[in-house]
Amino acid sequence: MGEDSAKTGRRPRADSLRNRELLLVAARGVFSAGGPEASLEAVARKAGVGIATLYRHFPTREAIFQAVYRREIDQLVDLAVTLAADEPPLEALRLWLRASIGMVATKKGMLAALAPAADSSTELFAYSSDQLNRCVGNLMATAVARGEIRDDLDSEDVLRALIGMCYTREQPGWQDKVGRLLDVFVDGLRMRRNES
């Protein structure tokens, strides 16, 4: 919601909401690709709007970082609920961790392109850490209760492993390689017959 709409209590116009949505989707795509082309100008171009429209919705570089990152986290929270309802526990955990690779890619690209002030993102990072730990913890608890995975790791261990895989030496195709490593890691969580 734009600042003017928040102050006046008016609902934002449909075209304003559409532009904001276009900008968030474009920003995710541009930042997850990373590289020197990951700029605010590239985001505006990809969204099909002018740079002034971007700044009207996101007056600072930090504002777009926070909006995109919070949206990524909220989508992962929703995905965890959906997967828990629709998939077997181990597969739900695997699919959620694979989706998280995209979030890490977006975050890496944003940090490199936007260099947001670390202090102003502390609250957002604390929020994201809590949400991600809760999602992984819930997915793991279900898999442990069903005897599908071992119980000697916690959600923080699993997230650290994921982040470690994502922050190794970056090269083209790193997301696919991390996905393969992640499959090996998740298979290693399986409860073996002689462990039950």
Rank of each mutant, 00 (worst) to 15 (best):
L40D: 01
S16Q: 11
W96S: 01
G2M: 15
T82E: 15
Q66P: 01
L153D: 04
A85I: 02
S5P: 04
D157A: 10
L181M: 08
A112M: 14
A14Y: 14
E195M: 13
G188F: 13
A117V: 12
C166I: 07
D130G: 11
Y69A: 01
A44F: 13
Q66L: 11
A141Q: 09
A84W: 03
D183E: 14
H57C: 09
S39A: 06
F65T: 02
V104A: 06
M140D: 05
S121G: 03
R94G: 00
S100P: 02
A63C: 01
N19E: 15
A143H: 03
M191G: 04
R10C: 04
D152Y: 13
R160S: 07
N138Y: 03
G48E: 08
Y69Q: 02
V186A: 07
E21L: 11
D74T: 15
D78G: 10
L153C: 06
Q131R: 15
P12A: 15
N19S: 11
D183H: 10
A143R: 04
Q175F: 05
K7W: 06
A84P: 01
S129T: 15
N133Q: 10
D187R: 02
W174E: 14
S5D: 13
M1D: 10
L153W: 08
Q175W: 09
A145T: 15
R192W: 09
A52N: 10
M1C: 06
I101G: 03
M140H: 13
T60S: 14
V25T: 05
V77A: 11
E37G: 12
A118H: 02
L124F: 11
V186N: 03
R18V: 05
M110Y: 01
D119A: 14
E123I: 11
E37N: 09
Y55S: 01
E91V: 11
A6G: 02
R20A: 00
V81H: 09
T60Q: 08
S39D: 03
A113V: 00
E3R: 15
A118W: 01
C166M: 14
G50S: 09
D130M: 15
A99D: 06
C166T: 09
I101V: 10
S128T: 04
L159Y: 06
E170D: 11
A145S: 15
P59V: 03
L159A: 08
R98H: 14
R45F: 09
A42P: 04
A47C: 00
V77W: 07
S121R: 08
L189M: 15
V104D: 01
G50A: 05
Q171H: 11
E123S: 12
G137K: 03
L124V: 11
I149R: 03
K7S: 04
R192T: 07
C166Y: 06
A143G: 04
G188S: 13
S128K: 09
F125D: 12
L124N: 09
L159D: 03
V81L: 10
L153R: 09
V68E: 01
S39M: 05
E3G: 08
A14Q: 13
R18T: 05
S129M: 13
R45C: 04
R193W: 14
N138H: 05
L182Q: 04
L189D: 10
D15L: 09
R18P: 00
L54D: 01
A26Q: 07
V30K: 12
R71S: 15
M191F: 03
G109H: 02
E195I: 01
S129D: 15
L111P: 00
A26F: 07
A112Q: 15
